[in-house]
Simulated scan of single mutants.
Amino acid sequence: MASQRVFQLGLQRAAAPSFAKLQPAGRMVQRRLAATQSVNSAEGHEILAKQRLQRPVSPHLTIYKPQITWTASSFNRITGVALSGSLYLFGFAYLAAPTLGWHLETPSLVAAVASWPVAVKIAAKATVALPFFFHSLNGFRHLAWDLGIGFTNKVVIQTGWTVVGLTVATTLYYTLLG
């Protein structure tokens, strides 16, 4: 508050010579544009309670226009957690398999997947491919940023949509043809 007041006084003093004809010489005129009144503590708390009901919760996702930058950032984190979580889950299951009597060795997994219907195979491949390709391609984008490449708004938006397009293309390719 004090720094704002100092700034305002400085601006007034800087503008004072141009307004010298409007004011008495050497005298600064201060105007208060806000109405003030004295209230007791209970009334003050009541006023604050009413003001709090009027205030929006900020910052919140509902007040922002969706942009590719924060959408891609959110999905990059979500896909990273999903991929690493899946890896850890399978790793722990693989370690516990002999004790629990599960058959998670390669021939058993290949035979199990071979017996699935085609639609289930496609859905499983897409479920793995989409987060993998998005996280990988967005990772290259972040590596470029680490090198200081592509930090303008235009390039960030272009690369964001490029990552989305390449993710869809590579996911469809490896899901349907791979």
Results as ranks from 00 to 15, higher is better:
residue 39 V to D: 01
residue 36 T to Q: 04
residue 31 R to W: 11
residue 59 P to H: 09
residue 49 A to V: 01
residue 56 P to I: 00
residue 50 K to G: 05
residue 44 G to T: 01
residue 41 S to R: 09
residue 35 A to L: 06
residue 31 R to K: 14
residue 46 E to Y: 03
residue 53 L to V: 04
residue 32 R to V: 01
residue 63 I to G: 07
residue 35 A to M: 08
residue 54 Q to L: 10
residue 41 S to Y: 08
residue 49 A to W: 01
residue 29 V to K: 12
residue 62 T to Q: 09
residue 55 R to V: 03
residue 34 A to Q: 07
residue 28 M to A: 14
residue 42 A to E: 08
residue 58 S to L: 12
residue 36 T to S: 04
residue 43 E to D: 11
residue 59 P to V: 06
residue 46 E to P: 00
residue 56 P to K: 07
residue 35 A to H: 06
residue 29 V to M: 13
residue 42 A to T: 12
residue 54 Q to A: 12
residue 51 Q to K: 09
residue 59 P to I: 03
residue 25 A to E: 15
residue 25 A to D: 15
residue 31 R to T: 09
residue 26 G to S: 12
residue 36 T to C: 03
residue 42 A to F: 00
residue 25 A to F: 15
residue 45 H to K: 12
residue 39 V to C: 01
residue 44 G to D: 02
residue 39 V to M: 00
residue 52 R to G: 04
residue 58 S to W: 09
residue 30 Q to N: 15
residue 39 V to N: 01
residue 35 A to N: 07
residue 57 V to L: 11
residue 48 L to F: 04
residue 52 R to A: 03
residue 30 Q to L: 15
residue 51 Q to S: 09
residue 27 R to P: 08
residue 59 P to R: 06
residue 46 E to T: 05
residue 30 Q to S: 15
residue 48 L to Q: 11
residue 25 A to M: 14
residue 34 A to Y: 04
residue 24 P to E: 15
residue 33 L to H: 05
residue 39 V to I: 08
residue 40 N to F: 03
residue 27 R to F: 14
residue 61 L to Y: 10
residue 65 K to G: 06
residue 30 Q to H: 14
residue 29 V to E: 13
residue 59 P to M: 05
residue 25 A to P: 15
residue 28 M to Y: 11
residue 38 S to C: 04
residue 49 A to R: 03
residue 28 M to C: 14
residue 60 H to G: 06
residue 38 S to L: 08
residue 50 K to Y: 01
residue 60 H to V: 07
residue 31 R to E: 13
residue 44 G to P: 00
residue 24 P to S: 15
residue 32 R to L: 10
